[in-house]
Design a protein around this nucleic acid. Structure first.
Lengths: 359, 359
DNA sequence: CAGTCGGGTCGAATCGATTCGACGTACAAT
DNA sequence: ATTGTACGTCGAATCGATTCGACCCGACTG
């Protein structure tokens, strides 16, 4: 080619597929096929195209253009409704995410983290991101507007623990029934004086004793359902609200519940294993023996790194929920209409619950 | 136009901006402006466009087309070289990620998780994702090919702990010097018999005593640098390799180092705080008092949820590194050329180190 | 030897929106 | 009354690649 475009002007604009094609003396169509491998190309041509690309410093087809033409981006959005740090400190969410990656593995897609932080502010928000599908993890209904937009755009959406409404498939467990089963276990052991440590009730993450006002303003389904489950057995039980699912928060809540030896409960239902671990720690600090003097029951069934007890807990299939959500996404992208699945949790009886000591 | 395309055939294809514009009786350009707000539009027109959109069930502009035209996607890629679960269980990575989100906040961008798993398999791999920039976190040089492609495409790239080479800005700490300082602290206390528990040496995450073969095949810079730092003071120290940075792994490594009372070291340098916490746990199980009988030093300066000791450790600014990487990205997108930054870690002396007990 | 099959290549349309320059029109300033 | 200006709107080009139908020609079949 004598008619070189004279790139001496500098790398002002990066080469495009068309440039490469011209350099190789083929059409853009052929060059495209040479790169993507979809369609027949002679080896000679392919080599020539690749060589031209190398000479021009071409870095491969632009993903943006590709995704526009193909109509999909290969990206699955994950909505977390928390800042990144908070979400990633919760082992249950991690497990769920891990299951999700398994579930969508056949897609070979990437995971785009979306939080409510930059809601509408930046160029990428929930309803405004180049995603092929969206998974909502533990989301309150406050996103209905964006979710509606997703629906209109025909983007498959699945929810995990958090009912967005509409005909969105949900992967859930029966939090109330599960907690009730845990409470029944305590009742069967003979406990009558039971308290609970709950997860946050609202996005503000207020900490402290549960008040009717707080409860009325609760936006977190999971928390309220587990609370109801406990009340099904112990209607008037004391409740302490933690600001997050962590050992430290559990410890603080535990300390306030156990501080007064006179009013101390004989068992505590924690709404997560981390909280339970914190409660146990608080008990140990106060010289209260678990389970002889205090029974503790958790929720989740995660392995708490560093906890030496075999926690009595309600084992929920976090990974399975994530995987199911991923598989549902795959189905929906293939035109299917997966159903919601309600998983069951199983009570694992460890060594942190025992009959109350006779007083 | 009397020749309407008669969309009575059904909602086979979703409406586009052009459809909305036609319905509202304006041009596509005007409709675009009405949506994006960039440019002057009369309120009447804007309302008409929005109304038309509502009637047609239009969900807003297609992000794919937008990103093609605008040349940016509003997405920052994060390369982790681990499966999701492993990465998210490491508090240091979480902190770094958190700092990163802070740093790129002005961009309002989303975070796209990229791991080596679907490498080239799926539609989205490192060099083939619609990202505006990429952050490599603790990556080995095995991605040089993809990174080169990124460079060619002119995508800003920043590395955190992991030297990809080239002129990519790096946010690092001097792992060797830091560890050496920790070792010197032990030496100053009088310790002569010291062992170390290292992070994984390779992607296979082999566990066990460190062998010359393993060491020769090491691909993880951080591990090897911290090992060197320890050897600068204690050239022949015993080393046990953990398969991950976790309390449990630290505990196992600790048990094997401390099992034999005769050959037991008086101090252990752990390459992470989680490992240190595990070592302390192992010591407690064996009835070895920390710090009276065993000094333990960690690395990272994270708060280990559930650890009651004030760990002596090398506090590194994980969040700052992440934030700096984010800010570097912002600069690069603005045309700047940020420099690499080498952070310094500080030795925090807690209550887990003390002079060795006289034998 | 004619007809057909199919591998390899090309041209042109397409994906859906954004953006730039141009064109009126209405209103204010001179 | 006229020139200037600012605003609102439109048309057309553009972003960069993929894909579909058409086409050419060598090879194989009847």
């Amino acid at each position: 080619m004598t008619a070189e475009p004279a790139p001496a002007t500098g790398a002002i604009s990066r080469p495009t597929l068309a440039d490469v094609a011209a350099r190789a003396g083929v059409s853009a169509s052929t060059a495209s096929i040479a790169f993507s491998g979809s369609g027949p190309v002679s080896d000679a041509t392919k080599e020539r195209v690749l060589a031209a690309a190398a000479e021009l410093g071409y870095g491969g087809p632009d993903p943006r253009a590709r995704s526009l033409r193909q109509g999909r981006s290969g990206i699955v959005g994950v909505v977390l409704e928390e800042r990144v740090r908070a979400a990633f400190l919760d082992p249950v969410k991690i497990q769920t995410l891990d299951g999700l990656t398994e579930g969508i593995a056949p897609l070979g897609a990437g995971l785009l983290l979306l939080t409510d932080s930059g809601d509408g502010g930046g160029p990428v928000s929930i309803d405004n991101a180049p995603v092929d599908a969206v998974v909502l993890i533990g989301c309150s209904p406050k996103f209905w507007r964006q979710i509606e937009a997703l629906q209109r755009r025909g983007i498959p959406t699945v929810a995990i623990e958090g009912a967005p409404g509409g005909d969105i498939p949900e992967m859930t467990i029966d939090n109330r029934e599960a907690t009730r089963r845990g409470a029944e276990h305590l009742r069967d052991l003979g406990h009558t004086d039971v308290a609970t440590v709950t997860l946050p009730l609202d996005p503000d993450r207020t900490r402290g004793p549960l008040t009717p006002e707080l409860e009325a303003a609760c936006t977190v389904d999971t928390t309220i359902e587990r609370l109801r489950g406990a009340r099904d057995v112990y209607p008037g039980l004391r409740a302490q609200v933690a600001a997050a699912s962590s050992i430290e928060e559990g410890r603080e809540a535990g300390l306030s519940l156990l501080a007064d030896a006179a009013t101390r409960p004989t068992a505590i239902i924690a709404q997560s294993d981390l909280l339970a671990a914190g409660v146990i720690q608080a008990a140990e600090e106060l010289g209260i023996d678990v389970p002889a003097e205090l029974s503790v029951i958790g929720f989740d069934g995660i392995r708490v790194d560093g906890l030496q007890h075999d926690l009595t807990t309600l084992v929920q299939p976090s990974v399975a929920k994530g995987r199911a959500a991923g598989e549902a996404i795959v189905q929906m992208l293939a035109g299917g209409s997966p159903k919601s699945v309600r998983y069951t949790s199983t009570l694992h009886v460890g060594d942190t619950t025992a009959p109350p000591r006779a007083r």
